[in-house]
């Protein structure tokens, strides 16, 4: 994390989070954010980019993810080793609480980082899969706003799915 505004030899970008924290990232990391890659390709990229939908806590994680992926892919190791390495990293990276996970998913969607979006969606799906409805509601604070009659109707409509 740095707030220096000088540009060094290597092309760097300054990303400003919603709460005003500035992150310095190299181009190889920045291009993993599809929104920024498009700006660069369209020659509209300014060195200073404000990201209005992402907090500094989440942006730090996103940058950590992109950095690791950029380094592993350009590291010159064989494809299979790199794949293994990314898999372990991804697994550990997803070892966060549900709220962080949701914000990461939302950020990956907003910043258009395909691999992170897939990863978070898959992880969220696996959290939902092994739980009952009541457990899912509790885990994500989903408020049941059905009336008793309405809920019964939905359960009846999809009775085959509830066994």
């Amino acid at each position: 994390m740095s707030s220096s505004t000088e540009l060094t030899e290597k092309k760097v970008f300054l990303l400003k989070s919603l709460d005003g924290v500035i992150f310095e990232v190299e181009e190889s990391v920045a291009v993993q954010l599809e929104v920024i890659r498009e700006l660069i390709e369209g020659d509209c990229a300014r060195p200073f980019i404000s990201l209005y939908n992402v907090t500094s806590e989440i942006l730090a994680l996103v940058i950590e993810y992109c950095k690791h992926h950029a380094e592993t892919c350009s590291g010159g190791t064989s494809a299979t080793i790199a794949d293994e390495d990314l898999k372990t990293f991804d697994n550990e990276f997803m070892n966060v609480d549900e709220n962080i996970l949701l914000e990461l998913c939302s950020a990956a969607d907003y910043l258009d980082i395909k691999s992170l979006f897939e990863l978070t969606c898959r992880t969220l799906a696996s959290l939902i899969k092994d739980r009952t409805i009541i457990e899912v509601r509790k885990m994500f604070n989903v408020e049941n706003d059905f009336s008793v009659v309405e809920e019964k109707a939905v359960r009846k409509e999809f009775a085959w799915a509830f066994k």
């Binding site: 409805i133 989903v142 408020e143 049941n144 059905f146 809920e151 939905v154 999809f158 509830f162």
Partner: peptide, 8 residues
């Protein structure tokens, strides 16, 4: 499909 009873 089961998630359809989570909420409206």
């Amino acid at each position: 499909v089961v998630t359809s009873v989570l909420s409206t």
